[in-house]
Design a protein around this nucleic acid. Structure first.
Length: 1072
RNA sequence: GCGCGCUUAGCUCAGUGGUAGAGCAUUACCUUCACACGGUAGGGGUCGCAGGUUCGAAACCUGCAGCGCGCACCA
């Protein structure tokens, strides 16, 4: 550190040290080094989108992980922070498709699957490194030698392996279901990817005519008699007025025209052509008698009346208080309606295409229109027909595609579903809040208070990596714990996971099948089946599943017949036998072979494609279907690698609560299913980063600052510090650029404090000299005690994942305690003495003080390192604190310097860190503040150096007086004897150290002084009154603990003394 | 509708039974040889509201209100 710039310049420092760390393999984890003495600590990064860019959420999240990882290194652990990226199916595919559309005016279909995927890989090569480079800028200490990607070959094989396994276990199945369809990206989505948003729209009421029974043609759909349970049927017989609900006073009866009209409420009139029934609640007295009759569906208008007769059915699902109590049922376009349709075996009429446009069945008026345009037209049409009764503004919740931000279209389609594995275990393993405090399991939740103290923490935490398997009853903990409840709730109501996506970029479903549309194909399939049955004997990752007609070719005739009978509900075997033979001979068309093939049997797939005309399922898997394997799939699984053995299960997971279902819960299930163990022990959920108005940061709002710009402007340490400081435990983060500015200022303060140390000790010989306890002043002891306190607080805060609290302690300690008081006070021993030369004793005191400074700064840099990695490394070397340390303990880099420990009892005794010294220094600083206030309030010329007089309460060494003089910016502090009395009206202030006078003959504004003291007296009187009132309360003295009573009495005495002094000085004040 | 969280100084937040705090912002002053990305001093709060428990409540209990977030098939 030769030329020390006046201000810290992060730009010149950060890249230099990052390169150094990487070149020196500081972040590379070595499983061979893990031992009893050097436990493993691991985190897997929540993989960011490979083509994404860093945003404030990443900054928050990764700074926390880096703090944990760096702290663990300093604790002497072998640390693996495993980085990587996620292929992000929909997002990446969307970006590439958009680019192609823009640049070549082509769709992805135009260029074809193979070519498209090539383009995605090119895109990935180009943009994939961006976010990784950005994480490096932030200072993240990831093990880059282990960087992983969810689409790399090994990972792909793992995804396939898991798919085959779950398929084999019967947990993965293909089914025709109502799914959340995104008309923009043309794919199905899982329930988790749908976001409910309140939407302003209209509720339309339209009337339909109930057809007379005679009008019923044979073409109409019969009402399934299973639709109404006997109970509800009997309920319909209850006379009006006796229904317990009291709803529906009057049954709907024919009007003057002899017709019965029903009014139906809907928000989606465009789906009317898809209605196949209207439903009423069988308990609803208004309508129950109409069940079994039909209504005339108004749309499509051009259809003849008899083709638009749909039944009125009774279904408990209908809420008769909502709308009109009559529900139109569109089984093909609504989840609830689909269920009703299933219950009543209603036909399905699809009227909307995959892209959200209306098809031919929607009728001539709507055909080809977009669904929203169609809504308007449908309303116009209803109006024209005289069917529209009412149209009123209405707000309801509409599901939106999280990615494309367009309303979801519930749509019937064939998809792959997963029944989640290990649900019960996953549910049980997370510690739930114990409100009773009884702890039924016998397990004591480990809170911050129960964690080992700092000195113990250099060893292993209970249950940390290296102590697996976890003893029974020990659980995973969420921080803040309330998320455990959210997690539990989701698992309790868990639905099968729709894992297929109609995309190209991703893990293609490893299932092959053949078509059987002709007898030749059918025969071929039968041959293929025989071949596969043989292959299956030898291969663990090959599963053949015959469907339809082929299902029975491999079974005995009797099994087949029994199955058919069951499936089709035949009452006798006779019909089943007929069906069996029909299928055997002409069953093709309904048959197929589903073959699920793992990574080790791909040659079978090849053969199937070539020789039997099989094709692979075109769908890809949900991105989360690869992410949920992340903790172990990144460590070499399924091999029992050294990495996996040493670092799995991981120690901490840091992630956003938004992906608790998407990712965390699923990783836990996968962990149990494939590793037989939890994937991590503690999960820390960050807050959501919001702008200062409390709005979520988003691209569309443009309220998200670019972290890279902030880093360029303020430095990486600054953004880390600022973010951590404003991120309270478990709350959202209100981000303000001011926070980063504050971080920069802090770094600058740290820089300059070190610079000061360099300047006062420029002879360079005293670096980390031994501290001589006999030469320690009260200031020295005071700062050592404050440091000790800071170490405890920061260590505890980190153990409890309370990052903002840790940072606040550091801020207070360094800025207020070290810089404002200790450094200022130390100047008394540093500066040029007015007499010119310094004697030998002064030199000794100064040298000792420099040793104390080095001790404190050395500890401070280490305390700060996890938060401010760059500046601490720069100063660590610049100050030479690394010089005498072993290579692997801070000699080479602060990364491996040991985490500071609080003083032991022996050290306290050795340095003489007792209460007395602490109290003297504290009182001294307090008196300084009082003295400064005095001169300020007396409105004295600030430029003028003043003489103070001090009447000490006890013995006061000369060096303490020197400090007082300096801090008071006084010309002199004269010490006077107890017998000394000030001139009448001398302004004064006092505390336990003594009485401080400001003899200011002729200078003083007595009116101001009188005012000041009167005000002070009033304040004190109020305090006295407050305490006195408490003490005079008879029950107070009786019931309060002795210590509290004594404390109050002492307090009262203190205030009373103070009051007397002030009153006296007020009396002494001469008239103005 | 159910669940969760929040409400303390202008702002962001600490504070889980015993004297209401921090940082920022603000006001005044200071360019004193580490730092103006700085220093010194000051002003500023019926702790959302109403009850209750207690000698004592910002904190514990009950209710209410406002804000935010999840979950839920209400057309």
């Amino acid at each position: 550190m030769i030329e020390i710039p006046k201000a810290y310049e992060p730009q010149s420092v950060e890249d230099k040290w990052y390169d150094f760390w990487v070149k020196q393999n500081c972040f590379t984890a070595d499983p061979a080094r893990v031992s009893e003495k050097r436990p493993a600590y691991s985190i897997v990064i929540p993989p960011p989108n490979v083509t994404g860019v860093l945003h404030m959420g990443h900054v928050l999240n990764n700074t926390i992980q880096d703090i944990l990882a760096r702290k663990a290194r300093m604790d002497g652990k072998e640390v693996l922070w495993l980085p990587g990226t996620d292929h992000a199916g929909i997002a990446t595919e969307g970006m590439v498709a958009k680019q192609i559309r823009k640049e070549e005016k082509k769709s992805k279909q135009d260029i074809g699957r193979e070519e498209f995927l090539k383009r995605v890989w090119t895109w990935k090569e180009k943009h994939g490194g961006i976010i990784i480079a950005q994480l490096k800028k932030l200072g993240c200490s990831c093990d880059w030698t282990r960087e992983r990607f969810t689409m790399e070959p090994d990972y792909v094989r793992n995804v396939q392996r898991v798919f085959v396994d779950l398929y084999k276990k019967g947990l993965i199945y293909r089914g025709k279901r109502m799914v959340n369809w995104c008309p923009a990206t043309l794919t199905a989505l899982s329930d988790e990817e749908v976001e409910m948003k309140p939407q302003k729209g209209f509720m339309y009421h339209f009337k339909v005519e109930v057809a007379k029974s005679a009008a019923l043609g044979s073409a109409t759909v019969p009402v399934a008699d299973s639709g109404i349970s006997p109970i509800s049927s009997s309920r319909t017989a209850i006379p009006v007025g006796e229904t317990s609900t009291g709803a529906g006073e009057t049954p709907a009866l024919p009007g003057p025209d002899g017709k019965i009209w029903l009014t139906i409420a809907t928000t989606r009139p465009e789906t009317i052509p898809g209605d196949t029934a209207v439903a009423v609640n069988p308990k609803d007295a208004r309508y129950a008698h109409l069940i079994g009759k039909h209504i005339v569906r108004p749309l499509p208008a051009e259809l003849p009346r008899e083709q638009k007769l749909i039944p009125i059915i009774g279904d408990e699902h209908v809420d008769f208080e909502f709308g009109t109590g009559v529900l139109k049922v569109t089984p093909a376009h609504d989840k609830a309606d689909f269920d009703i349709g299933t219950r009543h075996k209603l036909p399905l009429i699809e009227v909307i295409n995959a892209d959200g446009s209306m098809n031919d069945l929607a009728g001539a008026d709507l055909k080809g229109l977009d669904r929203f345009k169609a809504r308007k037209v449908a309303v116009e049409k209803l109006t024209e027909l005289g069917a529209l009764v009412e149209e009123k503004p209405y707000e309801n919740n509409v599901g939106f595609s999280q990615r494309a931000d367009v309303p979801i279209e519930p749509r019937l389609s064939e998809q792959w579903f997963l029944k989640y594995p290990a649900v019960e275990k996953s549910k049980a393993c997370v510690e739930q809040e114990d409100r009773t405090g009884l702890g039924g399991t016998g397990y004591q939740p480990v809170t911050v208070g129960n964690l080992p103290t700092v000195s113990e923490a250099s060893g292993r935490l209970p249950g940390a990596t290296g102590q697996w398997p976890v003893p029974p009853g020990q659980k995973m903990r969420f921080h803040p714990q309330r998320w455990a409840k959210v997690y539990d709730h989701w698992l309790t109501n868990i639905q099968d996971w729709c894992i297929s996506r109609q995309l190209w970029w991703g893990h293609q479903v490893p299932v092959w099948s053949c078509s059987c549309n002709s007898s030749e194909e059918f025969t071929k399939a039968k041959i293929a089946y025989d071949y596969l049955l043989v292959e299956q004997l030898e291969r663990a990752d090959l599963v053949v599943r015959p469907k339809g007609a082929l299902e029975f070719t491999g079974e005995s005739v009797s099994v087949s017949i029994r199955k058919i009978k069951e499936e089709l509900g035949f009452s006798s075997f006779e019909e089943a036998i007929k069906e069996h033979f029909r299928r055997q001979t002409e069953g093709y068309g309904s048959g197929s072979l589903q073959v699920c093939i793992g990574p080790d049997s791909l040659e079978v797939a090849e053969k199937l494609e070539k020789e039997f005309g099989f094709t692979q399922d075109p769908d890809v898997l949900d991105t989360w279907f690869s992410s949920w394997l992340w903790p172990f799939a990144t460590m070499g699984w399924p091999e029992q690698t050294e990495t996996l053995k040493a670092f799995y299960p991981t120690t901490d997971l840091v992630t956003a609560p938004e992906i608790i279902f998407f990712w965390v819960a699923r990783m836990i299930m996968a962990g149990y299913e494939y590793m037989g163990e939890l994937p991590f022990r503690d999960v820390y959920f960050t807050g959501i980063v919001r702008d200062k108005q409390g709005r979520k940061m988003s691209k569309s709002l443009g309220n998200s600052p670019d972290p890279l710009e902030l880093i360029a402007k303020y430095g990486a340490d600054a953004i880390r510090f600022g973010t951590m400081r404003s991120a309270p435990l478990g709350q959202d983060v209100m981000f303000d650029e001011k926070d980063v500015e504050l971080g920069r200022n802090f770094c600058n303060k740290l820089w300059n404090a070190c610079r000061f140390r360099q300047m006062v000790g420029s002879d360079g010989s005293q670096t980390e000299g031994e501290i001589n306890p006999t030469l320690l002043t009260s200031d020295d002891k005071w700062i050592l005690l404050r440091l000790d306190q800071a170490i405890r607080e920061v260590s505890d805060a980190l153990a409890g994942y309370n990052f903002s609290s840790a940072v606040q302690t550091l801020y207070r300690f360094f800025w207020s305690e070290y810089c404002d008081w200790y450094v200022e006070a130390s100047k008394a021993a540093m500066g040029n003495t007015e007499g010119g030369t310094r004697n030998a004793e002064q030199e000794k005191l100064k040298a000792n003080k420099l040793a104390v400074m080095d001790f404190v700064l050395g500890h401070t840099l280490r305390l700060f390192h996890p938060f401010l990695p760059f500046i601490t490394e720069e100063l660590w070397h610049g100050m030479g604190f690394n010089r005498e340390l072993p290579e692997d303990r801070g000699g080479k880099t602060i990364v491996f310097a040991t985490w500071p420990k609080p003083f032991s009892e022996e050290e306290r005794t050795y340095f003489g860190l007792d209460d007395a010294a602490d109290k003297i220094a504290s009182a001294k600083y307090e008196l300084v503040s009082l003295g400064r206030s005095l001169r300020r309030e007396l409105k004295l010329d600030p430029a003028k150096k003043l003489k103070f007089t001090l009447k000490p309460a006890g013995e006061l060494p000369a060096n303490e007086v020197e400090v007082l003089k300096l801090l008071l910016n006084a010309e002199a502090v004269e010490i006077v004897a107890q017998t000394w009395t000030p001139a009448k009206g001398t302004p004064s202030a006092s505390n336990s150290l003594g009485e401080l006078f400001l003899p200011t003959t002729g200078l003083i504004d007595f009116t101001a002084e009188r005012e000041r003291r009167a005000k002070e007296a009033e304040k004190i009187r109020a305090e006295v009154e407050k305490v006195r009132q408490k003490l005079t309360n008879p029950s107070f003295a009786q019931k309060v603990p002795a210590a509290v009573l004594a404390e109050h009495q002492q307090r009262l005495a203190g205030w009373e003394t103070k009051l007397r002094q002030v009153e006296l000085s007020l009396e002494n004040l001469p008239e103005a």
